[in-house]
Amino acid sequence: MFEARLNNATTLKKILDAIKDLLNEGTFDCSDSGIQLQAMDNSHVSLVSLTLRSDGFDKFRCDRNLSMGMNLGSMAKILKCANNDDTVTIKAQDNADTVTFMFESQNQEKVSDYEMKLMNLDQEHLGIPETDYSCVVRMPAMEFARICRDLAQFSESVVICCTKEGVKFSASGDVGSANVKLAQTFNVDKEEEAIVIEMQEPVVLTFACRYLNAFTKATPLSNQVQLSMSADVPLVVEYRIAELGHIRYYLAPKIED
């Protein structure tokens, strides 16, 4: 028996919004430690890794490890049927071929349940080792989303250059060129407005704007985003989900043709 409850459907809606543009389907691996999903986009350029800890749920029970392959478009249709302040419970029997989403209104007067067929997905799982990155940048998630959106107008790629002075995002194309420089902040009142750079070695890396913009769909989940970079390895874009877990996106850098 698997049962996971969140007192507010908003978080789950936001999580799905953060992955459904990149992934058509995904396997939710459930164990007593929580729920994990790892999946690559169709073109195998990026990878999404979602971790939701069991202690972040309002109720969590998982008697046996369970892998639930879900069509994320179908899941999105179902979650649209939940009000933001509904309690959402995800339920499945052991070895079941369906999952049930139950939504309960705050006053308990409306209870709806939606059953969805599970899929057998043959997905490759990649082992991602713990890595010390040359540069780790923490910045407001909204600012990162704004920069990615703005620079995508100029080019398909953005160059991220990180030094101890700051981080620079650049794009150039037919229209011209664009550069956005952010300096590390000191003495900001609010932690969520801070720009913090931890640098061991400076890095310059090029990434596809299309994917960065897809990652920023996670912006509503977190005030801050963390970018981890080293030469010639995938960028990690991490959004923490308060008291529940995190979503990490891995993106292979572009190299000279």
């Binding site: 690559m40 073109s43 195998h44 350029v45 990026s46 990878l47 490759e124 799982h125 990649l126 082992g127 991602i128 080792p129 596809a208 390895v233 995938p234 891995y250 993106l251 292979a252 850098p253 572009k254 190299i255 000279e256 043709d257």
Partner: peptide
């Protein structure tokens, strides 16, 4: 050129 993410990590 865009590299494949699988070229960086081993299959678990």
């Amino acid at each position: 050129m865009q590299r494949d993410i699988r070229s960086f990590y081993k299959t678990a």
